[in-house]
């Protein structure tokens, strides 16, 4: 099949950037979306031009490296999938595909479709952990954890840190990302002691990193490739309120 690619090309962080339009033919259905881009990049290389820069690594939906806006939707047309999990059978001959980087104040563009998502790391560094030293733990089965709670903590922990939620949010908020990590740790008995401190520190870090506020658009949930839900955001807000009360009490 033949498609028209409209791609955001930006040489570096300081470059203004613009869309370029290309024709790409000879695409087969079994190709993954990223393989389609690989093949196109080979063509650019043969012509001696710089290929389109895009991030990817595992190519199976788990590392969170890949992702850009595809026809205005983060990770492309499929629900519950990252861009590397999209196959060209989702498209037909003659389609136009527009590719743009994830845009957000907190995610500066580095080149073409590559953005800097290190602001996510700073949120985790502020409190996305349980403070336990190596070697200090008791036997793992000493403290049973109800299966339903363990399962739910796991669901919250499946976030891959891709940034689709931020790019889809009109405010560029990282509330879904942040709240999912808080939920994972705060739900477990191990995470209990630092519960309020964690929520406050992570939310402060999120604000400091130039992410916007949440105003309940819920676009994040709609595009999250891992199906993480907005209920964690309200849990996070409750943690914050309790945290404040707690602080004033003590």
């Amino acid at each position: 099949m033949n498609i028209t690619l409209k791609v955001w090309r930006q040489a570096g962080p300081k470059d203004a950037g613009k869309f370029e339009t290309y024709q790409h033919d000879g695409i087969v259905e079994e190709m993954s979306f990223l393989e389609m881009l690989d093949v196109f990049n080979e063509k650019l290389l043969e012509a001696g031009t710089e290929p389109i820069a895009f991030e990817h690594d595992c190519r199976e939906g788990i590392c969170g490296s890949c992702g850009c806006m595809v026809n205005g939707r983060a990770h492309g047309p499929k629900d519950g999938a990252t861009l590397c999990q999209v196959h060209m059978r989702s498209y037909k001959d003659g389609d136009t595909i527009t590719l743009e980087p994830f845009r957000a104040k907190a995610f500066p563009i580095l080149k073409d479709l590559v953005v800097d998502r290190s602001a996510f790391d700073s949120i985790i560094q502020a409190g996305g952990y349980i403070s336990v030293r190596t070697g200090a733990a008791q036997d793992a089965n000493m403290r049973p954890v109800e299966k339903a709670i363990a399962d739910e903590a796991f669901d919250a922990a499946t976030c891959i840190g891709c940034g689709a939620c931020v790019a889809s949010c009109p405010n560029g908020s990282a509330s879904l990302f942040t709240s999912a990590k808080i939920a994972h740790l705060n739900m477990l008995p191990q995470g209990e002691p630092e519960k309020y401190k964690r929520a406050t520190a992570m939310v402060t870090a999120m604000d400091d990193a130039m992410f916007g506020a949440c105003s309940n658009h819920e676009e994040c949930e709609a595009t999250c490739p891992k199906g993480i839900g907005v209920e964690y955001i309200s849990q996070m807000n409750k943690n914050l309120i309790w945290g404040e009360l707690f602080e004033h009490d003590s």
Binding site: I130, A136, Q138, K147, A150, F154, A157, L185, Q190, G191
Partner: peptide, 8 residues
């Protein structure tokens, strides 16, 4: 102890 949610 770190909070890794293993299957239970």
């Amino acid at each position: 102890a770190q909070g890794v949610p293993f299957a239970r």
